[in-house]
C-alpha cells in the first residue's frame, strides 16, 4: 500500500486547486456582471487631496496619441506639473466626472457627453471646440473587394462592421448612410470604434466605418477610403476646464495649449480637422 499516501496528496491538491478555480471563476462572473453596470466611479483618490503639482486630464480614447504628445510638451514647459491622462470612452468619462472623479480638464469626443458635464454646471465657462473628426471606410490592405464608395457597403457579400447607434461613431454612421440613402447590412454593431477597427485589422471583416484618425493610427495594417457623404457627420471635440479643478491655473494653461497653434498642429498631424 505504498501508493496510498501519494494518492492522498494528489486528491488534496486537486481539491485545493478546484476550490481555487471555482472561487476564481466566481470572481470573474461577478466582475463581468458588476462592471457591466458601469455605475462605479474609478478607484481614484478622493477629490479632497489637493496636490498642486498634478493635472488630471480626462480625454476621449481617440485623443490618446495627440494628447500624450501634448502632455509631454506641457510638462516640459511646466516642470512642476505632472499631467495624468485618463483615456476612455467619452460617456464613461462623463459618468466618472459626474460621480466625483477628480478631473481638471475634460476633452470629449462629442458635444453630447460634454453636455452631461456642463448641464449640472461642472464645466468652467463654455467648452471650446478644438478638433473635428470624420468617418472613413476602412478596408484590409490592398482593398480586396475594390470598395470605392459608401454605396458599395450596401452589398450583402461584403462583411461590414459598424458602431452601434448608441455610441457616437454609430450615430455618425447612421447620419452618413441616411445621407447616401443606403442601408448597411452590418454583420456586427460594435460598442466602440476600436472594436470595429480590430475586426478589420484581424481580417474578420471586409470593411468598417471608423474615424479618419483611427485609420491614420493603424497605418500599414489597413487602408482608408474617403467617401463623399462623410461631411454629413462631422464630429466636434469640445474641451473644458472643470469647476472642481484642484489646479485651475494649470488646467487653463493646458486648455490653451490644446486649442492654441501648437495643439492645432499636433492635432492635424494625427489626422484631426481643426475648426
Amino acid at each position: 500500500m505504498g501508493h496510498a499516501p501519494r494518492r492522498n496528496t494528489a486528491v488534496k491538491r486537486t481539491a485545493r486547486s478546484s476550490l481555487l478555480a471555482v472561487l476564481l471563476g466566481g470572481a470573474l462572473l461577478a466582475t463581468t456582471a458588476c462592471s457591466a453596470a458601469g455605475q462605479g466611479p474609478q478607484g481614484a483618490p478622493a477629490s479632497g487631496s489637493v496636490s498642486s503639482g498634478e493635472l488630471n486630464v480626462f480625454a476621449a480614447a481617440s485623443l490618446n496619441g495627440v494628447l500624450t504628445d501634448l502632455a509631454a510638451d506641457f510638462e516640459d514647459d511646466h516642470p512642476d506639473v505632472t499631467v495624468r491622462l485618463n483615456f476612455a470612452g467619452s460617456s464613461d468619462l462623463a459618468t466618472q466626472i459626474l460621480s466625483g472623479a477628480p478631473a481638471d480638464v475634460f476633452a470629449s469626443a462629442n458635444p453630447e457627453n460634454m453636455d452631461k458635464v456642463t448641464a449640472p454646471g461642472m464645466a468652467a465657462g463654455e467648452p471650446v471646440t478644438f478638433a473635428t473628426n470624420v468617418l472613413q471606410i476602412v478596408v484590409p490592405v490592398g482593398n480586396p473587394h475594390g470598395i470605392t464608395s459608401l454605396a458599395d457597403l450596401a452589398d450583402q457579400q461584403i462583411k461590414t462592421v459598424i458602431c452601434a447607434p448608441q455610441v457616437p461613431c454609430g450615430a455618425a454612421t447612421q447620419k452618413v448612410s441616411q445621407e447616401a440613402g443606403i442601408e448597411i447590412p452590418a454583420v456586427s454593431e460594435e460598442s466602440s470604434v476600436t472594436d470595429v477597427l480590430g475586426k478589420v485589422v484581424s481580417g474578420e471583416a471586409d470593411a468598417g466605418l471608423v474615424y479618419v484618425t483611427d485609420v491614420k493610427n493603424a497605418q500599414g495594417d489597413v487602408e482608408g477610403i474617403d467617401f463623399a457623404e462623410a461631411g454629413a457627420a462631422v464630429n466636434d471635440y469640445p474641451i473644458a476646464r472643470l469647476v472642481e479643478s484642484a489646479n485651475p491655473d494649470a488646467a487653463e494653461a493646458f486648455v490653451a495649449l490644446v486649442t492654441g497653434p501648437e495643439g492645432r498642429k499636433a492635432l492635424a498631424d494625427y489626422g484631426f480637422g481643426t475648426p
Binding site: 463581468t32 453596470a37 458601469g38 455605475q39 460617456s91 448608441q166
Partner: peptide, 16 residues
C-alpha cells in the same frame, strides 16, 4: 452581457 455593455452608453437604467 454585451447588451448591458452597449445600453450603458445611452441608457443607464436599462443597463442596470
Amino acid at each position: 452581457p454585451l447588451e448591458i455593455y452597449l445600453q450603458r452608453e445611452t441608457d443607464a437604467d436599462a443597463a442596470v
